[in-house]
Amino acid sequence: MAETTILVEDVSMVFSTRDGDVHALDKVDFAAREGEFFSILGPSGCGKSTLLRIIGGLLRPTAGRVAVNGSRVVGPTPDVGIVFQSPVLMNWRTVLENVMLQAEVRHLNLKQYRERAMGLLEMVGLAGFEDKYPYQLSGGMQQRASICRALVHDPPLLLMDEPFGALDALTRERMNLELLRIWEASRKTVLFITHSIPEAVFLSDRVAIMSPRPGHLDEIASTRLPRPRTMATMEDETFVKTVGTIRRSLKQEGSID
């Protein structure tokens, strides 16, 4: 039995706004195991990103407990890599300098991590682009650079907030395959947030389905698909069935019409 990496217990989040309180999360409960690829699937605005920020220690929940690797999250979680919806690259830094930000801020050995950064850039197909500025890259390349930034310090936990949501469908499929390749090589725990059912099923070991606001985890489905997964996986009967089952449960709770 693998160890629990992320433990979320009874987490609720209420934002106070001028128009009254907004209940973003309602008693969310789940545990992700070490080395697991765990997805949270739900419609826009169901509080998925809020949950990711809470696990990353960037937001404090109104109620409940979060622990990562056995220690309670009170501030930004150490040893985590976060990939955001947009690449959030600094336009005054080159691709390599953007990746190295992680090492600089964490006071790591720059020389040593520079080599690692170059290796990662090569792995995601950005070799030769390390001295380019973000504006010189396409959206897909920018997001790949931001994945390198999240991985450069070799964190055991990777939090990904709809990282491919802004990409076109073709680039997105390719990025999914690349992400699996990276994950299979490193076996990090990944918490992946998405609103695409096929993406969640294709990537994950387990998929948690989140209801609309206030966000609540209703059901956690295991995908039971063999690895390594390839393009052919998407035509697999189990894949199609799982996608169908998840679609029906989302429909039942009114997330899709």
Partner: peptide
């Protein structure tokens, strides 16, 4: 952007690092 601040904070950055690495160059 808030995401930029959160991104730097997620690297266990101090308040000064957040300023020096993001707010200062952005202001140039």
């Amino acid at each position: 952007e808030n995401d930029m601040i959160d991104m730097v904070r997620s690297m266990s950055a101090s308040k000064w690092q957040v300023f020096w690495k993001s707010r200062f160059p952005n202001s140039l």
